[in-house]
């Protein structure tokens, strides 16, 4: 492992499932400093001259390679904004694993705002996984405000998995995407909030080319007194296909606002949205209880499955 303390190692394991140095390219950032980097023949990682972030350059045709770019914060009171740009060459097929873990045992807020820009070349395929996690019992908040800007060229495709299950006090996640002809974007969001947490997800997908498609699916659980807002807007400017879905379970005093928006500028645009908010279905609890589970165990299994 690069130079990381035990807390940082634990955070990395949570957000990237990494227990040792990953194969392939990586860039570890810990408490606002570079903690390790590896590049490969096809994937280069360069620090920006002004020190505000990194450029990840993936050569055209790169196949079956991965890039890990975890960020961990284990000190209280860090506030940072990082700009990372990804240039994904034509026809490549790569996996990018990002993620941010904050452990805050102190009194000051810790905040990481990552601004990620993706330029996905023609015919390229990217799988992007981003996990957020917070821990530590300090009064200081754990705050994450990621912005993701995606520019997709013709026939490119991108799968995004966004996961935030625990411990982040406040988050506003903004994702903007523009798609050229034949480009496909699939977003799967998994979100659970508890305590007094707040989480907002804002998506704007512009489908500019014929045959482009976007599918934004969110599964969310809001417990205790937490609040979530899901705001997904799909704009169809061509013969395209757009779909957004918000499926939320509320528990306790959880509060969820779903704001789906569709806008069509082309008669051949097909846009759909679905939104459902409700408590756990009584019959699901009943069924698991007939298998011998207690009501609490049943609830836990249903939530775990739902967010899997």
């Amino acid at each position: 492992m690069p130079e990381l303390d035990p807390i940082q190692k634990r955070l990395i394991a949570e957000i990237a499932d990494l227990h040792e140095v990953p194969a392939g390219a990586y860039n570890f950032r810990a408490n606002s400093k570079l903690a390790g980097r590896n590049t490969t023949a096809n994937i280069d990682i360069i620090s920006k001259e002004d020190g505000t972030g990194i450029d990840v350059k993936i050569k055209p045709g790169t196949k079956n390679e991965s890039v890990h770019i975890p960020v961990v914060i284990s000190a209280s009171g860090i506030k940072e904004t990082v700009y990372n740009d990804f240039y994904i060459g034509e026809g490549s097929d790569v996996v990018i694993i990002a993620g941010c873990g904050i452990d805050n045992c102190g009194r000051q807020d810790s905040q990481h705002d990552g601004i990620h820009r993706f330029f996905v070349g023609k015919g390229a395929h990217v799988k992007y996984i981003e996990k957020h996690y917070g821990s530590g019992d300090g009064e200081g908040k754990r705050i994450l405000n990621p912005v993701t800007e995606v520019t997709m060229e013709e026939d490119s495709s991108m799968e995004m998995e966004m996961v935030q299950i625990k411990g982040v006090d406040s988050t506003v996640r903004t994702t903007n995407a523009t798609l050229a002809a034949g480009a496909k974007l699939l977003v799967q969001e998994r979100l659970m909030t508890h305590g007094h947490q707040k989480a907002e997800s804002v998506y704007k997908c512009e489908l500019n080319g014929d045959g482009s498609s976007a599918d934004v699916v969110s599964r969310a659980v809001a417990r205790d007194d937490s609040y979530q807002r899901f705001d997904a807007c799909v704009i169809g400017n061509a013969a395209c296909h757009g779909h957004t879905e918000c499926d939320a379970i509320i528990m306790d005093n959880g509060n969820v606002l779903a704001v789906p928006a569709l806008q069509a500028h082309n008669v051949d645009a097909e846009l759909f949205h679905e939104a459902a908010i409700g408590k756990i279905a009584g019959e699901q609890l009943d069924k698991l209880m007939t298998l011998g589970l207690t009501a609490e165990e049943a609830e836990e299994q249903i939530i775990n499955g739902f967010l899997k």
């Binding site: 699901q284 209880m289 007939t290 011998g292 499955g305």
Partner: peptide, 29 residues
Amino acid sequence: MSITDRARRGVSFAFQQPVKFKGLQVFDL
């Protein structure tokens, strides 16, 4: 008795209309 306690005493019940679960897999169940 609760559903759970009866189940633990040996009552099993296959519903007329099976319940669906998002995310839970056959193996999990």
